[in-house]
């Protein structure tokens, strides 16, 4: 795959096991994800969905196989290079949200821009814009520790999108939101992926959420299987 290859992410024979004396969590996974493509992965608890996301983001190492992000093989890169690539190209919404409780909402959202060294005025503009999109403008100066679970989830989503990453990884991003808010957030995720010519993977248990993606895969003992979209 070359630099002009439209595939943002490619998995080749990806295998992960936690202990040598146990069967692998998954084995020989292969996947291509192209620019603008939005993929949902479903599966039972313990199937390895979150583990897969960690591997895709370079937060964990596979036992065998390769992850190629923007054409770069993560297995051949050292930790610093992987981290810098992640900083620039990946947006991550964690299952447990993970925000910094001692920072304000806008400071949390602006973190990726801070790390990328975006100029102050541009950082403020993009942060304000993203906060407006997730409906958090009125809470911008509040500390994250004072917010509800749903509000924290919105911050996490805004933070994952604010630097316009090439790959968005979202692990159960709407689990804490009511149906209406969830629909808004899912729509926002899709819009941003398409608008930025990025690629996105949504891990979810919700068929409704999965149906907002371009295609749906299930992860189980046999690997990644296609699932027909409803309607």
């Amino acid at each position: 795959m070359g630099a002009d290859d439209p595939a943002v992410l490619r998995l080749e024979n990806l295998t992960k096991r936690y202990r040598r004396d146990r069967p692998p969590v998954f084995e020989d996974l292969n996947l291509d994800l192209r620019q603008g493509e939005y993929l949902a992965i479903m599966g039972e608890s313990g199937a390895g969905k979150s583990t897969l996301l960690n591997l895709l983001a370079g937060l964990d190492k596979p036992d065998s196989g390769r992850v190629l992000l923007e054409g770069l093989d993560l297995s051949t890169m050292d930790d610093d290079a992987t981290t810098l690539l992640r900083r620039r190209a990946v947006g991550f919404v964690f299952q447990a949200f993970h925000v910094l409780p001692y920072l304000t909402v806008e400071q949390n959202v602006a973190l990726p821009l801070d790390l990328l060294g975006v100029a102050s005025s541009e950082r403020s503009r993009r942060t304000a814009d993203m906060l407006e999109r997730v409906g958090m403008t009125s809470l911008a100066r509040r500390y994250a520790r004072d917010l509800s679970g749903g509000e924290v989830q919105r911050i996490a989503i805004a933070r994952a999108l604010v630097h316009k990453p090439r790959l968005l990884l979202a692990d159960e991003p709407t689990g804490n939101l009511d149906r209406r808010s969830a629909a808004q957030i899912l729509a926002l995720l899709r819009t941003q992926i398409k608008a930025n010519s990025a690629a996105g993977i949504l891990i979810t248990h919700s068929r409704t959420a999965a149906d907002t993606a371009d295609r749906i895969l299930t992860l189980d003992g046999r690997g990644l299987q296609s699932l027909e979209r409803a309607g």
Binding site: L59, D80, T83, L84, V90, F92, L100
Partner: peptide, 15 residues
């Protein structure tokens, strides 16, 4: 540790 891990996940290098 979770906050520091989050910073690492967001792209802060070890150094």
């Amino acid at each position: 540790r979770r906050s520091l891990a989050l910073l690492r996940a967001l792209g802060v290098t070890r150094g």
